[in-house]
Computed example of a mutant assay.
Amino acid sequence: MEFVFDGHNDVLLRLWRNMRNGADPLAEFAMGTREGHIDGPRAKAGGLAGGLCAIYIPSGDLILKEPDANGHYHTPLASPLERAPSLDIAIEKLALAHRLDKAGAWRICRSTDEIRRAMEDGIFAAVVHMEGCEALDADLAALEVFYAAGLRSLGPVWSRNNAFGHGVPFAFPMSPDAGPGLTDLGFELVRACDRMGIAIDLAHITEKGFWDVAKTSDAPLIASHSNVHALTAVARNLTDRQMDAIRERQGIVGLNYAVTMLRPDARDDANTSLDLMVRHIDYMVERMGIDCVALGSDFDGATVPHDIADAAGNQKLVAALKYAGYASDDLAKLCRENWLRVLSKTWHEPR
């Protein structure tokens, strides 16, 4: 079995929602459930040894548009969120992550050494990520507190605008050049993350914001759960020029399992072949090299191919990649080693 460290999941969102409805999140993760994509038993069955677990604040007003007769759609950006309720939700999810850690259901990791030790111990290695920074204040005082509590990665925006920058809509076909980039506060946030050793995720930001980060940050460029725009022309996917910049900075792109970001027609149809996943991987490897490509499933946040189904199906993708000609060393890089390399450099770890 090839162990996988995954670049993005929304398991905290699912557990938090169920907790608010009276469920026990510790039992749901530790004992397993048929709901969603990730829990302890299914992660073990599929070799999912850990990943970046998102603190995401839901947008209640976002309703994805249905495709028109040509298969095209354009969902307007979700409305901006107020900070105070966003902070409350972020704290609730962070507290949930720590409850899972305290119960031994997973282990919050702050270094790549801790990730490797958790893998060796057979415990899910959770890295706390913030997807959209609506919970942060202009002075970035909350960033210091979240960092002390384990935050090691963040995306300045989700697919909505906030005080730090602008996000891309869910739209097809559409360029990621969909609006302005970072705000003045966004530039300050990027500089603070570089100083502190917090990874900056570009998965939902506009192309202008991508280049704003690239010119401001010295860290590897990271798109944790994105695919190839030339193959699937959704606004969330990366252009060749963006991938060239990621290669030059020795960064990383995590393959998003979302079928809308894999299929040439961008339809939300789980009847999607694993061959399309391999095709996106092949394209990225050819464009950026094997060292800059990894996995970023978006489990619990998207529709994934039915052949994968959930975390237990991860090894089906590994098998498809092996069948496509990827050798053992390449599979190790795609599944975990590339993520650990990029995180180690971003987190200022000694070599």
Rank of each mutant, 00 (worst) to 15 (best):
M1I: 00
V4I: 15
D10Q: 10
L12V: 04
L13K: 05
R14I: 07
L15Q: 00
M19Q: 08
G22W: 14
G32Q: 01
G32Y: 01
T33S: 13
T33Y: 10
R34S: 04
E35P: 00
E35R: 11
H37D: 06
H37Q: 08
D39R: 02
P41Y: 08
G46C: 03
G50L: 07
A54T: 06
I57G: 00
I63R: 13
G71P: 10
H72D: 07
H72L: 04
A78Q: 06
S79T: 13
S79R: 11
P80S: 00
P85M: 10
I91N: 10
K93T: 06
K93H: 08
L96A: 05
A97V: 10
A97M: 03
H98C: 04
D101C: 05
W106H: 01
C109N: 09
C109Q: 08
R110W: 03
R110L: 08
T112C: 14
T112H: 13
T112K: 06
R116S: 13
A118M: 12
E120S: 13
E131Y: 04
L136I: 11
A138D: 14
A141F: 13
A149I: 09
G150N: 06
L151V: 11
L151C: 07
R152G: 02
S153R: 07
P156A: 00
P156I: 01
W158E: 05
R160D: 06
R160M: 11
N161W: 08
A163M: 05
H166I: 03
V168C: 05
F170Y: 11
P173V: 03
G179L: 01
L182W: 11
L185W: 03
L185Y: 00
F187D: 00
F187C: 04
R191D: 00
A192V: 12
C193A: 15
C193W: 09
C193Q: 15
M196V: 10
I198N: 04
I198L: 14
D201K: 07
L202W: 04
I205Q: 09
I205K: 09
G209Q: 07
F210P: 11
W211H: 09
D212P: 02
A214T: 10
S217Q: 04
S217T: 11
S217V: 03
S224A: 12
S226Q: 09
H229A: 08
H229Q: 08
T232D: 05
A235W: 11
I252E: 02
N256D: 09
M261Q: 12
L262N: 02
R263A: 02
D265C: 06
A270F: 05
A270P: 03
M277L: 07
V278Y: 08
H280R: 00
I281D: 01
D282N: 09
E286G: 13
I290V: 07
A294C: 03
S297P: 15
D298M: 06
G301K: 12
V304W: 02
H306C: 12
H306L: 13
I308R: 09
A309D: 14
Q315V: 01
A324W: 12
Y326R: 13
D329G: 09
D330L: 12
L331G: 05
A332Y: 14
A332D: 14
C335T: 12
C335F: 11
E337H: 14
N338D: 15
W339D: 06
K345P: 01
K345H: 05
